[in-house]
Design a binder for these strands. Sequence first.
DNA 1: CGATGATTTCAGTGTCGACCGAAGGGGAAC
DNA 2: GTTCCCCTTCGGTCGACACTGAAATCATCG
Lengths: 154, 154
Amino acid sequence: MSVGRETRLSAWIERFAAHFAEEGIPLIGGRILGYLLVCQPVERTAAELSQELEASSGSISTNLKFLVNSGLVTKRTRRGRQAAEYRINEKAWSDFVQRKLHAIASVQTLTDDGMRLLSGDPERAMRLKTVDHLYGWLSAEIPALWERRPASPK
Amino acid sequence: MSVGRETRLSAWIERFAAHFAEEGIPLIGGRILGYLLVCQPVERTAAELSQELEASSGSISTNLKFLVNSGLVTKRTRRGRQAAEYRINEKAWSDFVQRKLHAIASVQTLTDDGMRLLSGDPERAMRLKTVDHLYGWLSAEIPALWERRPASPK
DNA sequence: CGATGATTTCAGTGTCGACCGAAGGGGAAC
DNA sequence: GTTCCCCTTCGGTCGACACTGAAATCATCG
């Protein structure tokens, strides 16, 4: 007897959250992201997320604030509704990835500063130079790569 | 009156370590990396690192093991010397960066699995599809980018 | 083999951050 | 104004992890 789709989706959400937990996103934050990517309907209140993900209201609140702030989740309030609705802002995902790529390339400013400090001593600068070249190349190529990024299909 | 070069290098090492601390590398590990990138001579023993970086022998040992294991630092033993010598392996830095890029793109396997779970329901899969396309593109472009990477200058 | 000097292991400490849940605050409905 | 939710805030707990320093281990040399 096979497991239901919803059960498998729960497991998928958990894997999804685990991946981002390794990158520093709190487990519950990752669960929210995964859940909001596949839930039906697309909008949920904080209370619903709390129940669905079995997390305290406090944790949901803290993580939603973080996710809304990062742009990955959008908050919508409606007149006559006390509960705000949250939904994935999938368009923001490319900015999210771009920030990650930028974080990697940003080491170049460090190696650059280091090279300047060693400018009088080429011998000693050799090790840093190798690393600096790598990051220098990355810093040039990553924005170029992003230029070529196709618009996401409708 | 200006500060000496070595003093400024110490400050640089600290910034260097702080950057990688944000990426999950222990502070002392980052200090070792920064120090080994600019020290003269290029090789140091664990005891020297301990003294120079004012860290306990245990921390130095743990972090050196981690760094050697990751390939960023090379350990060399010599007959007639009880102390092993450690040095930066600057050539390994590109592998290190490549692993980071791969880690970002690897989300594609997750989104792909998710798409499969939602294969019967295109409407519901729309949000994930946007994200999946982004990572699919990345997964193709990043290896291609790496192909074009120039050899580091001698 | 014993001594010496270096490294690794390990138990203990302190810090940090995620999480919980109760208390407090703010709207909407009546 | 009062009641009823819902959300946010906040103190407290727990677990994870970096770091230390001492003890154990290992290698070299006499």
